[in-house]
Design a protein around this nucleic acid. Sequence first.
DNA 1: GTAACTTACGCTTATCGTAACCATA
DNA 2: TATGGTTACGATAAGCGTAAGTTAC
Lengths: 302, 302
Amino acid sequence: MLDPKRLQALQAVATTGSVREAATQLGYSSSAISQQIAALEVDSGSVLLEPAGRGVRLTPAGELLARHATRIFEQLAQAESELMALNAGQLGSLRLASFASAGAELVPPALAQLHARLPGLDVTLRSEVPEEALALLRRGLIDVAVIEVHDEVGGDGLVYTPLLTDVYRIVLPRGHRLAKRRTVALADAAGETWIRLGNHIGCCRRNTLAAFDRAGFTPTFVIEADEFWPAQGFVAAGMGLALLPSLALGVIRSDVVTRPLRPDAAPSRDVYAVTRPALSDTTAVKTAVAALVDAAQRDVVA
Amino acid sequence: MLDPKRLQALQAVATTGSVREAATQLGYSSSAISQQIAALEVDSGSVLLEPAGRGVRLTPAGELLARHATRIFEQLAQAESELMALNAGQLGSLRLASFASAGAELVPPALAQLHARLPGLDVTLRSEVPEEALALLRRGLIDVAVIEVHDEVGGDGLVYTPLLTDVYRIVLPRGHRLAKRRTVALADAAGETWIRLGNHIGCCRRNTLAAFDRAGFTPTFVIEADEFWPAQGFVAAGMGLALLPSLALGVIRSDVVTRPLRPDAAPSRDVYAVTRPALSDTTAVKTAVAALVDAAQRDVVA
DNA sequence: GTAACTTACGCTTATCGTAACCATA
DNA sequence: TATGGTTACGATAAGCGTAAGTTAC
């Protein structure tokens, strides 16, 4: 295989017309260029340069190689410029997965901001439960995962950025006796019936059960809702009360009300943006995570 | 500028899927590949490889560079294959110049043979006097010159290949007293009148004058012909005799005859194929010169 | 005589391989 | 425990520059 470095020397001679000027252009001595081309002549098995007056001239073989060299270095320059664009987040794609309630409330404004800042980025979003999102992340099929967790995170080689702590609120039918209070102690609702959350909705079920446990009673479940929206419906229908995370309460039925729980007793889930170390320094991922942090901040304030 | 050698390492990892196999493919140790890519990561300012299970995976930046690397090395391979074709004479062009009488008799069969052997070669022919042909050769505007010379040749940095010695013959009107002889001694024609050759026709004029001088008489010129064909006409018209080179006698008028001169007295011109050293080893030029030698051989025999 | 290219030669520097180390399945 | 990747380090060889040699104007 012909050595590109040597081709570059030849190409410089072709464009400048002399060994001396080629050396100047490339920052070498004439000797270096002369030796490069001599080596290239051995490699290619052709005479590439011939004396012409006091200078040199390219042979047909030399012209042919110089022509190709030009194309090769153009290609190389294009690779560099595309890489710059990729590094700047002006090019390429960003694949994101989030759990359902974040995908509805947190992610859309974040992606809007991301798109405003990096219009050239091809952003795709899918909805996945946390474990699946992490698996996809590890397999390189997505670049950023927005997940909910309860335990400590990290130590698994992934990069976690905390977004917000999503506090559970109690959801009551309008006119319920507890609706008069600004905050509700879970123990005061010990006699109520409850809407249970489906097992597949992240870790909400385990989360709420732990809260009942801390409140000192075992709840009576009358029905199971497999999504957050039907859960509100069951509450409105008077079948029972529900504990739902704030992120799932972006839209609240007019015939139900929500109240915060006493802080010490309130269950919560932590929301993180996760990525791989190799991507964590790219502009695309950094901008995306920053946008998520931003959106989370505004969500908490609101 | 990104180092192509390092890009090659990355591309090998991209195609094989592992550092180890890439090393095997390129004939290096794993360590070398790892170091190449580490260096490329510094050059490019991007993470290109990330751990994936027990092996590695390319990042988007890595994929981008690998993609470009593929194109670059394809281009390089194409350059090599075109160069091979050029070296084999299956590609490219061959520009040839010859003096007029060779261009009529010697060159056409040679070029026919050249075309048969190297059909891919783009051959062009122009007619030039020897000095001009040599000047064009030196300036790189032609590749092979077919010239006539009288003095010794060489020592000027060009490569000379002798083709033939073109002997002058005496041209007589049919029925002339000297036409009965098989060979003519120039001294026997001392009393005749002569057709002078134009100054621009190579070196024929000087050549013939020297022959008269050797024969011991000064010829009486009655008219000057600026081409060989009219010279035959003047002879046929009975205006005088002429000395013309054999190569110019490919076509002979029916009302004139030609006879060889006594060997010791016969003037002659030497015909050479000339090229530049840088081209003398190329298949195209070697084949062309060989074809000229071949044609000259057949011409002499005939 | 001068300008340009090439050749010779010593030295710097890049880069490879061996071997030890680390991580993963 | 074995496989694949990376890091450390010594050895090798490629490639540069200086300087002398050669050729053309």
